[in-house]
């Protein structure tokens, strides 16, 4: 073996592919992450639908038609926020970000790798949750509705992902773990993501500004009514701008 120097950077797209493939592999290998990504949303959906049918709670529609979009939004949020923040927090803690910082992978490549990995995991989540929902009697509606839901998912990923990175880059990994899980649970319970805002009574108006409610609203508007919820999109875009500012201001690589 010769060590004669032959330095050089791999092409950008190959680097991004390697980085995202690695991130997806590691995520699938991690039990807690899978719990967060798939098991909790599926449980929420199944329990919600059976519970609502049993108690004969009628939203304006069949429970599964209301809950399936909400749970899809929950899955998007869990991956873009909690999983991303926790994984990145530990990457920082274990010196992985520092290590990659001296490799030929540019920061844009690292970020692109993370985004591609996120989108892959989210696509898989939506397939699983969607399949369970279909099994429970859900019909996803029109192609327009699905396309609008994809837009909502991308906006939601930008909002929650940037907030997650800001958190992971600012505080210690253990604190990121605790805060990300806590925020996720609070938003799941009280953030109008799974349940529509009007089930929260008087708080419905205030909840509108939360990214979780906006993501849920946008998913329900798209998949139930086949229309864009422009207010919710604007709220998500606002959070994405704020999250990006916070992340670029407070993210520390070491």
């Amino acid at each position: 073996m010769t060590f004669t120097p032959a330095p050089g950077s791999a092409p950008f797209l190959r680097q991004v592919r390697a980085q995202s493939a690695m991130e997806v592999r590691l995520l699938l290998r991690n039990g807690e992450q899978l719990l967060l990504a798939a098991v909790i949303p599926v449980l929420a959906l199944v329990a919600g639908v059976f519970g609502a049918r049993r108690l004969d709670l009628s939203f304006d529609h069949d429970p599964v038609d209301v809950l399936a979009p909400g749970v899809l939004a929950l899955a998007i949020m869990s991956t873009a926020f909690a999983s991303l923040a926790i994984a990145t927090g530990f990457e920082r803690r274990y010196g992985l970000l520092k290590r990659l910082g001296s490799s030929p992978l540019p920061r844009t490549g690292l970020l692109a790798g993370k985004v591609v990995a996120l989108l892959c995991v989210q696509a898989a989540q939506c397939l699983v949750v969607g399949a369970v929902a279909v099994g429970l009697g859900w019909r996803p509606g029109s192609a327009t509705g699905v396309a609008l839901a994809v837009v909502a998912a991308l906006l939601g990923t930008a909002a929650f992902g940037s907030l997650g990175l800001a958190l992971a880059g600012a505080v210690r990994a253990e604190a990121t773990l605790a805060i990300a899980n806590l925020v996720y649970l609070l938003l799941m319970a009280g953030g109008a993501v799974v349940l529509p805002r009007d089930s929260y009574g008087a708080a419905a108006g205030v909840l509108q500004v939360l990214p979780s409610a906006a993501l849920g609203d946008a998913f329900r508007a798209a998949l139930i009514d086949g229309r864009p919820d422009l207010v919710a999109w604007a709220v998500l875009a606002g959070w994405a701008v704020l999250g990006t500012l916070l992340a670029s201001r407070f993210f520390k690589w070491e």
């Binding site: 060590f3 390697a18 980085q19 274990y94 290590r99 001296s102």
Partner: peptide, 28 residues
């Protein structure tokens, strides 16, 4: 680096292959 620099769950050779993939002409 003096320490760290890898994911905690990554396998040793997998990590090395990953760093190799970021370069143009890595060693075998």
């Amino acid at each position: 680096l003096q320490d760290g620099g890898a994911w905690s769950g990554v396998r040793a050779v997998e990590m090395l292959e990953h760093i190799a993939a970021l370069h143009a002409h890595p060693l075998p």
